[in-house]
Write a protein that binds this DNA or RNA. Structure first.
Lengths: 219, 219
DNA sequence: ACACGGCCTGACCGATCGGTTAATATAATA
DNA sequence: TATTATATTAACCGATCGGTCAGGCCGTGT
């Protein structure tokens, strides 16, 4: 049987309008958040009738969740090889950091989208938590080789700190520019920021990797 | 001349409804953000008529900015003594960290409010940037004693990292709970988090303070 | 030729949005 | 007591919200 273009079913997305709507929604939700965007905004930006948005996406929440899911898939893809890599712990962590920064630099709107919804009591919270879990699992596992499972020096705390340090630069970039009088998202600035993060990772590993793989204060 | 209750003028806030409206707005804006809250929501929560909100606050944006400003004043007050303190650089930084964490723990909604608006292209962006400037100025100045002015190990990068590390825990707390299966805002968890941050500060200072006050790689 | 199903639209729905207005209740002043 | 300024409200405004609906268009299979 010859395959033909059927009703949209998540397998066949050859449809042009569908993609236009989704990418418009992505752009606008990133700019202004769930509550700041109307379906009409999306339709106008995509150049279609408002009703068509509801034709492809049953309601606003589903449209938003689809945007989230698309980003999650892209993130998973981008981190997959780095996350499953084996070898020297330093190399693993540095590669993971680079993979994540690569992804964020290519998708600077993603951290904003996530962070804003996390701050709000978003209806997508559980979904976001589920999306973050693999990343946190990888991170705590990587740190777990030389950090304790609990207490103030635990792997959870360290990964949370690294993650916050890395991501906050991007989410705060709109005001960092005016505070430091530079363009934080410029090419050189991003490269320098990346160097900084690697530098911190190294200094952390230097301080916490001991010969018997024990963190200080855990003897 | 005897002082009397006059029209509301930012000096005399003895009025009850004014305070109720403002604190309701604060609570709701923190929960759901600017676009997620309607003036009617605020009025109902405050137990007054919607029109009274517009009587005290000319429009929604001004109501929101007043909430922001109130928080900023409270933050300034909370950090004032710590920021102006002199003495040993380690003590200054640890005291600054404690003062900031004290404030955030007493006002857990504040980082959320700020972060969400920063991520959005909020109309209050310039105001927020202005509010953050003193904090960043203090931080970069404190680090400035032993860190370079530019490059990947600059005081700006370090303070940005510290700030991100510290604040992200609070803004991400809604999902950290389900990821780590704990209550990140519980009393013990907060105390442990504080220990962790002090621990990182110390490890950073150990690594970067050298006898001639120069950062590694800057010889 | 005709029917069918996916694509797309304009018109419409009730609810709610931010904001205004006119009128009233209340309390201080004279 | 009469007057005046403030505090408060119900009713209303046009615009926009998320969402629905009936029907037209168009390529395909029969």
């Amino acid at each position: 049987m010859k395959t033909k273009i059927k009703k949209h079913d998540n397998k066949n997305k050859s449809n042009d309008s569908y993609e236009k709507i989704l990418s418009s929604a992505e752009e606008l939700f990133i700019e202004r958040g769930f509550d700041g965007v109307s379906i009409n905004d999306v339709a106008v930006h995509a150049g279609v009738a408002k009703a068509l948005v509801f034709y492809y996406f049953k309601n606003k929440q589903i449209l938003f969740d689809t945007v989230l899911e698309d980003y999650y898939k892209a993130q998973s893809l981008a981190l997959m090889s780095a996350i499953s890599a084996k070898g020297d712990i330093r190399t693993i962590i540095h590669n993971g950091v680079d993979a994540y920064l690569d992804f964020v630099e290519r998708n600077p709107g993603y951290p904003k989208l996530i962070q804003r919804e996390v701050c709000s009591g978003s209806k997508s919270l559980e979904k976001i938590a589920a999306y973050m879990t693999p990343l946190y699992a990888w991170g705590t596992n990587a740190f777990g080789e030389f950090l304790p499972d609990s207490g103030p020096a635990s792997k959870q705390h360290f990964f949370t700190s690294f993650f916050g340090m890395a991501i906050n630069y991007y989410t705060y970039s709109p005001i960092l520019g005016s505070i430091f009088n530079t363009d934080p998202m410029g090419k050189e600035a991003l490269a320098e920021r990346r160097q900084h993060i690697h530098l911190i990772v190294d200094s952390m590993l230097d301080g916490y990797i001991t010969e018997n793989n024990q963190a200080p204060g855990q003897e």
